[in-house]
Design a protein around this nucleic acid. Structure first.
Lengths: 209, 209, 209, 209
DNA sequence: AATGAATGAGTTTTCATTCAT
DNA sequence: TATGAATGAAAACTCATTCAT
């Protein structure tokens, strides 16, 4: 198992394991503190079965996360195509974060996973650089709607793609952070959403100075 | 020990432990995988000594991190006051990130620590809400220079303080992310720095639309 | 299955398993570390099939080994009968050890199996005491050529059969040991062969003192 | 820990572990089936303590065995020096085997350990090739009494040392085998002892043909 | 006060054996 | 009859925490 298989090729027990891992992360469990037995109990399978498909605990995690990111961004891509304008796409994205804020830990954890230094984090990043991941890579999914927005004349030209992707990424991250640190930094998520939205639009759609 | 003591009140062995923890984090070690013996070895003290000052491993971490954030933001505040304008303050901040990019993991790790769900992460957030931390709280340090910038007329009024703080926070975070994911997302840190700088200035200093 | 069946009565899948076990032992695998799946993979059959014929892993081993010893000593008996004198028979035995020294682990392992204390070792010894094994029992095969040698006047009479069998056994074992510990004890196998040969001849054929 | 330390340098808990391993082997436990927890229980120490001194289970075994062989041959050497002639030395050796026949499995097990293909067996052989083992190496201990016997004119000259060592080794092994396979091969140990004794004397002390 | 040897509860991992297909 | 996916008991190994010195 690599986490990069086609969705229909993945054995049911492996899917149950992936779902268990994601559920646990969404419930706020710290990745490094999740036990193999917790995963297999949750998946409703025997402990040994995990090792029929994977060699180590880290591999289970890395594959589950890679699978999840691919699934998320596949759906994201489909849903974003249903929105008519870049502004509506952005609004939809922020609304999703809001709607899934009960899963707020998951977003944050995904950012951790992409940036931290653990063994399985490295595995995830490695897998994300493979060809079969490309299509669902965040950079490419966001890149696509940005290109379409430019083609429609909604987004001003002249900005490097990397910067635009990071602008979206950073805006969404800011909003997520404001949700997950609400108690600690005393911010109103509602207000933050509105400001983040305006900021990104101003940045990407405003007239260049 | 709470991590909130006055700097001169902290026993030397505790300082050595704090330094060891921060060093290890800066070297990229994953927080949850650092062992107590690694800390005490690095600090040059006996393993048992750690438990003369702290009750659990998590407490050691939480206190070290809180101590470090206070120290960082105390220095940050002093240095920022030496700069004449908000724009120079911002440039200085970005330059610092650059200069300390060998410690790049540390910034990201601090973000992890402030946002994840582990036991010791919760402890850190709790401590950051205490009165004795207030003065060094990131929100207050950034808030102060923003207020001064507004007083000097460099920053436009009308924006909620929370949003402005998050704009800086999010900008800096974007830059850090671009540095630490360079290999994975293929972005040029140099270009990102320039864009982040312009973005924050435009956002906070530009004329309101 | 008991490992004592007539050769033509043994089902093909069982023969494949026996061969797999012996192959693995000859390749130097440590008996207790060989897995059932390794045996069935090598035999080209399903894992479950092993349990259609045997109750436990130990039984598989014990039967395979008993079968192998019977096969070996059946061939040994036939080949030894082709040699004209006891001295030629002895030379042929030493030459065989030499020729099969790539299978040296197998000889040693067989000795281990006959003398160690594991579960399956006990099973092997038990089976070797059964009537249907008798004909191929090392004691009887060596005993036969010794008796013939005495009848031909080549071997001096007056020595107890058990001692003579042990003399051969011990000589062969010494030669095998010298081959398998060559690297460790720095002996020349060639020289050892010659001395072992002379020693046995002197012992069994020399004039009694 | 290497198993090659000076006797007085070995920490008490390690000695307890060595003794536990040797006891278990002497009681007939199959080496590969002895559990770490059995060793530490027997040694009266905590399971984790084993891993304070050794990295793996195999290392525990290898060191215990190497230590034991050194100890045995150190005592052997001392005791052999007390006997006045080679013949008395040989008689003493055979008597020891007899006397320790309740530990009969141990001798055989040691032979297994020196000749099989398992991980820890390889470790033992490696350690036996080190300089600090030399003095207690079976080849050297037997070699020494053989040399003394030759100097005294008891042993005939002209035989290669390697062969003489193997003659003793093989004789002792034959006797041990006859003891440990008594039930299976129906031999009388008493008779075997006498024959083995005569055989070795004839071989090494008899007039050369 | 400081130590580090010792601990054992808690994990990961293995693999003989079962049983639905 | 033959299979191999699934199992879980059992074993190796880790490391935070304790406590005698």
């Amino acid at each position: 198992m690599t986490g990069l298989e086609e969705f229909q090729e993945i054995p049911p027990k492996v899917l149950q394991m992936y779902d268990a891992v994601i559920q646990l992360i969404e419930e706020g469990e710290d990745a490094s503190s999740i036990r193999v037995s917790t995963i297999t109990d949750r998946a409703g399978i025997g402990k040994g079965t995990a090792y029929d498909y994977f060699d180590t605990k880290e591999e289970i995690f890395a594959c589950a996360v890679v699978f999840h990111i691919r699934r998320i961004f596949r759906i994201l891509e489909q849903e974003l195509q249903k929105q008519e304008s870049f502004e509506k796409q952005l609004a939809w994205l922020l609304y999703q974060i809001d709607r899934e804020s009960n899963k707020k830990y998951c977003f944050i954890r995904m950012v951790h996973i992409l940036t931290d230094n653990s063994d399985f984090s490295r595995q995830v990043r490695q897998k994300m650089m493979s060809d079969s991941f490309r299509r669902y890579h965040p950079v490419n999914v966001f890149g696509k709607i940005l290109q379409q927005g430019m083609d429609r004349g909604e987004i001003r030209s002249g900005l490097p793609m990397e910067f635009m992707v990071y602008t979206i990424f950073s805006g969404l991250l800011t909003y997520m952070l404001s949700i997950s640190t609400e108690e600690c930094f005393h911010v109103s998520p509602e207000m933050m959403k509105s400001f983040v939205h305006q900021q990104i639009i101003r940045e990407l759609c405003g007239k260049s100075n």
